[in-house]
């Protein structure tokens, strides 16, 4: 858990570069003010996502689930990334909070319908990313819901079909799934030949 927490903090900080740099210009008053708003909104969306996910997990599971809180912060960051410059501070917090809310339910739902996603990547990036895209027209009058949906669909269809072709080829030539036995033993030994924590006592 300390590594997961540190990883989240690293991503949180790195995201200032990710979104702030995407303004592409800093050298005048309007651009630098815009970069400052992007920093502010990126930070506050992550905070909103974290608090929302923590509260939902407290209500839903009865405990403050740290993994959900961390995923909530990342969800807030993902949600604001589609449009970090036009929302007000409060809107950015709410966009992040809705992201944090969605990610908890999405992770639970994917578990329920038995879709295997050990780190919640589909929920954090896919589902919340879609929410972020759809939230753009709420604060940016230059975007429309239909435009956002069309864009998301086009991207999904292209990436899904192109990736499917590559995965299909890989599956026929090399195979993609590790053996059941390797999976049980963990892929550290079978693929890399070493353990991450060799001195830990293994109860199995």
């Amino acid at each position: 858990m300390p590594l997961a927490t540190l990883g989240t903090f690293i991503l949180w900080m790195g995201w200032f570069g990710f979104n702030g740099g995407s303004v592409l210009k800093l050298g005048d008053i309007a651009s630098s003010n815009s970069v400052a708003m992007v920093f502010l909104n990126t930070n506050t969306a992550a905070a909103g996502g974290l608090v929302a996910a923590l509260l939902v997990s407290r209500i839903k599971f009865g405990k403050a689930d740290l993994t959900m809180a961390l995923n909530g912060a990342l969800a807030g960051l993902v949600a604001i990334t589609a449009e970090p410059s036009t929302p007000s501070a409060l809107s950015a917090t709410l966009i992040g909070a809705v992201g944090g809310l969605i990610v908890v339910f999405s992770i639970v739902l994917l578990d329920k319908i038995k879709i295997d996603d050990p780190v919640g990547a589909i929920s954090v990036h896919g589902v919340v990313g879609l929410w972020g895209l759809l939230a753009v027209p709420l604060t940016n009058s230059g975007a429309t819901f239909m435009g956002q949906i069309t864009g998301a669909l086009v991207i999904f269809v292209w990436v899904f079909s192109a990736s499917f072709a590559v995965w299909f080829a890989l599956k026929s030539i090399l195979g993609i799934r590790v053996d059941a036995e390797e999976e049980y033993e963990g892929v550290d030994l079978s693929e890399c030949g070493m353990e991450a924590y060799p001195e830990f006592v293994n109860p199995s």
Partner: peptide, 10 residues
């Protein structure tokens, strides 16, 4: 620690 950071920002 993560929650206090978020609460502070909000």
């Amino acid at each position: 620690n993560v929650a206090l950071f978020a609460v502070s920002c909000i």
